[in-house]
């Protein structure tokens, strides 16, 4: 069965593979996904088609080997440490550009602006969230992708309340050469995969997950999504291969943390 599409894949497993696909073509850089589904996806990519990426144990080491997601599990596993990488080193890597982060977005807009800082503006927020964290530095220095497990008009918004990670309109405004390292490669949600491969760099539907309709995506998106006019219908997100499913289920996430992040 190896290599053939499986139909018993869950939505979470389809999302794992979509996250993995965001890293296709990445070579000597730090693969740095945040969140369970992205982490499983990153490890899957390294275990299969992107072996040259290095991977963080999310504590202080860059580590080799395939081991389960989740701190408790990974502590029990003997990890081959490739490099000592405390936070200070992570910032060095960010500024060197040798990193692709796949992080969350509480809000995202059509240009790929991301908000993880606050809802309702920053003066006196209705809801204080994480803060800017590393988003401003990430976006201006290296490739970024996003994972939004709850695709709705509350997360895919016409305008984000705070720009933590700047998108393509902000980069157009900034201009060259300041914007030269910026790339928002992919947005993976529970409904589909999106990119910015459009003439004006607005968000485009790249594929919909198996069983998701175009109307469902449109109804849950607070702005107009670009679509490939050359295609009659929107592509379906690639299904996991048998080998990928086996890796996900038996090696990378035996405790099924993926379903906790994305209930079936």
């Amino acid at each position: 069965m190896t290599g053939l599409p499986m139909t018993d894949a869950t939505r979470a497993e389809i999302c794992v593979v979509a996250c993995a696909e965001a890293f296709r073509g990445d070579r000597n850089l730090l693969c740095n996904p945040i969140g369970n589904v992205p982490i499983i996806g990153g490890r899957l990519a390294r275990a299969t088609f992107a072996p040259e990426m290095v991977y963080t144990d999310t504590v202080s080491s860059l580590v080799a080997g395939n081991y389960p997601v989740g701190a408790a599990d990974s502590e029990k596993v003997e990890k081959a440490v490739e490099t000592y990488a405390p936070y200070r080193t992570i910032f060095d890597i960010v500024w060197s550009g040798r990193r692709h982060v796949l992080m969350g977005a509480s809000q995202i807009d059509m240009w790929g602006n991301q908000n993880i800082a606050a809802i309702g503006g920053w003066d006196k927020p209705k809801a204080q969230l994480l803060g800017l964290r590393g988003a401003p530095g990430n976006l201006i220095n290296h490739t970024t992708s996003y994972w939004v497990p709850q695709h709705s008009i509350r997360s895919f918004v016409p305008e984000v309340d705070v720009v933590s990670g700047p998108g393509y309109d902000r980069m157009r405004e900034l201009g060259a050469p300041g914007n030269r390292f910026h790339e928002v490669r992919r947005v993976v949600s529970n409904l589909g995969v999106f990119d910015f491969d459009t003439p004006d760099r607005r968000m485009r539907i790249r594929s919909l997950h198996l069983g998701v309709t175009l109307d469902e995506v449109k109804d849950n998106t607070g702005f107009e999504l670009a679509m490939d006019a050359t295609q009659d219908e929107v592509a379906v997100t690639r299904l996991p291969t048998g080998e990928e499913l086996q890796l996900i289920r038996e090696v990378l996430d035996p405790n099924n943390l993926r379903d906790r992040e994305l209930p079936a």
Partner: peptide, 13 residues
């Protein structure tokens, strides 16, 4: 000097 903050709302905040 740093690039971090360019284009984001860090400077407006």
């Amino acid at each position: 000097p740093t690039r971090a903050g360019l284009g984001s709302d860090m400077l407006a905040m």
